Amino acid sequence: MAAYLKARIDLGTLEAGNKLPPTAALMKQFDLSDNAVYRGIALLKAEGYVHSQQGKGVFVSDRRRLIAGANRIKGITSPGESIHHKLSARVEAPDWVAADLGEGECVNRVRTVNRGDFILQASQSWVHLDVAEVVPEVDEPQACDPTWQAIYEQRSGNPVGVASKTVDARITSAADREALGLDADFAVLVMRSVYVTGDKVIGVGEGVYAPGHPLAIA
Rank of each mutant, 00 (worst) to 15 (best):
A3N: 15
Y4V: 12
K6I: 08
T13H: 06
G17F: 02
P22A: 12
L26C: 13
D34A: 13
N35R: 11
A36Q: 15
V37T: 13
R39K: 11
I41Q: 04
A42W: 02
A42E: 04
A42M: 03
L44Q: 09
K45C: 06
A46D: 08
G57E: 09
G57D: 10
V60W: 02
R63S: 00
A68Q: 03
A70L: 03
N71H: 07
R72K: 04
K74Q: 13
G75Y: 04
I76E: 14
S78C: 10
E81D: 14
E81Y: 13
H85A: 00
L87W: 03
S88K: 07
A89I: 09
E92G: 12
P94N: 14
D95T: 12
D95E: 11
A98S: 12
A99H: 10
G102S: 10
N108K: 10
N108I: 01
T112V: 11
V113F: 08
Q121A: 13
Q124M: 00
Q124C: 00
L129W: 08
V131G: 09
A132S: 06
A132C: 03
V135I: 00
V135T: 01
V135H: 01
V135A: 01
P136T: 10
V138K: 09
D139W: 09
E140N: 03
E140P: 01
E140T: 02
P141G: 06
Q142I: 04
A143E: 02
I151Q: 13
E153A: 01
S156D: 15
V160Y: 04
K165H: 06
K165C: 11
K165Y: 04
D168K: 11
D168H: 07
I171H: 11
I171E: 15
T172R: 15
A174H: 10
A175V: 13
G181V: 06
G181I: 05
D185Y: 13
F186Q: 14
F186L: 13
V188Q: 07
V190D: 04
V190K: 06
V194T: 07
T197H: 07
T197F: 05
V201P: 02
G203L: 01
G203V: 00
G203Q: 01
G205D: 05
E206N: 03
E206M: 06
V208W: 04
A210L: 10
A210V: 03
P211W: 09
G212E: 13
A218K: 07
